[in-house]
């Protein structure tokens, strides 16, 4: 965990009102694991006061988004005239966020060359079951953000990955180019404008027997629906939670979630929890 300054390398509105930002931060890129987050100050003023916790979307690190997986190599980069939108370079991490309130509006205005104050990487990330080979990733809306970093690492470990991604309409669905090409990408939209029609949890049953391990991130009703499926504990299902937080490091107790182990801090005890532990 470090507190310091990160440089904005690139920023783009990749879906309506959804922004992707590449941040130059070798210390965080070196240490970050999928599921962890970065606590970013929105600007220097006191309004908005608090930092915004953004999960690590992709990590630019040899061996993660590395040349072996065909995702990135320094020579590819030199040939390209502009920054590769979807792939952070080595020493960078990317974040993906929706512009919702004052804080994310300020962040969405950041330009390449700007410096942002950051603390990270924070929290406990996802963990692989050593025996798992087939991974099912279930994303609701921007819950896809941390799961792409996880998919990168799984591909690197030569695991088989299916990512189910749900959104209300196609305007909330990332293009396949935003993901590692080795994975199976199944899209569900509530209005049927892209992929299958219906909520993403409706598609889970079809894949659950195949999967050795399941990773989830999305809005609370989606998480509730998955809890209701009573997935076998042998699948070691893990969920990354989101909650409003102030400090991000376990001191303020603002981001508590109730679990079978009592109240837990999303920022420090999570943000990744076992799905079966949530109440």
């Amino acid at each position: 965990m470090i507190q310091g300054t990160v440089g904005v390398v690139a920023r783009a509105e990749v879906l309506p009102n959804v922004f992707l930002m590449h941040l130059r931060t070798p210390e965080i890129a070196k240490r970050a694991h999928p599921g962890q987050f970065i606590h970013l100050a929105c600007d220097d003023a006191s309004d908005p006061l608090l930092r915004r916790p953004l999960s690590v979307h992709r990590i630019g690190r040899a061996g993660v988004a590395g040349a072996k997986a065909g995702i990135y190599s320094p020579s590819d980069r030199r040939e390209s005239s502009s920054v590769d939108l979807w792939r952070p370079a080595e020493g960078e991490v990317s974040v993906l966020f929706a512009r919702i309130g004052k804080g994310t509006t300020a962040l969405a205005r950041s330009n390449p060359g700007d410096a942002l104050s950051a603390i990270g990487p924070l929290g406990n990330g996802f963990s692989f079951d050593p025996k798992a080979r087939n991974l099912l990733l279930v994303a609701g809306g921007l819950g896809i953000a941390p799961l792409v970093a996880l998919a990168d690492e799984a591909v690197e470990r030569e695991m088989v990955v299916t990512l189910l991604a749900g959104a209300r309409t196609e305007s909330g669905i990332l293009p396949a180019a935003a993901l590692p090409p080795e994975i199976e990408y199944v899209v569900c939209t509530e209005d049927g404008s892209h992929g299958r029609q219906g909520v993403v949890t409706g598609a889970v049953a079809e894949f659950v027997d195949w999967a050795d391990q399941i990773f989830v991130c999305g809005p609370r009703p989606m998480v509730e629906a998955l809890i209701a499926l009573r997935i076998s504990p042998t699948k070691s299902a893990q969920v990354a939670l989101e909650e409003h937080m102030a400090c991000g490091i376990g001191a303020c107790l603002g981001c508590i979630v109730q679990t079978r182990r009592g109240p837990q801090r999303v920022c420090r005890d999570g943000p990744v929890f076992r799905l079966g532990d949530l109440r």
Partner: peptide, 23 residues
């Protein structure tokens, strides 16, 4: 003490409200 239910914090102009409940 387990403290209060969520939501426990709300950001306001140049400040924040909290109701942690002495957890």
């Amino acid at each position: 003490r387990e403290g209060n239910p969520q939501p426990r914090i709300a950001e306001t102009a140049s400040g924040m409200l909290n109701t942690i409940g002495l957890q």
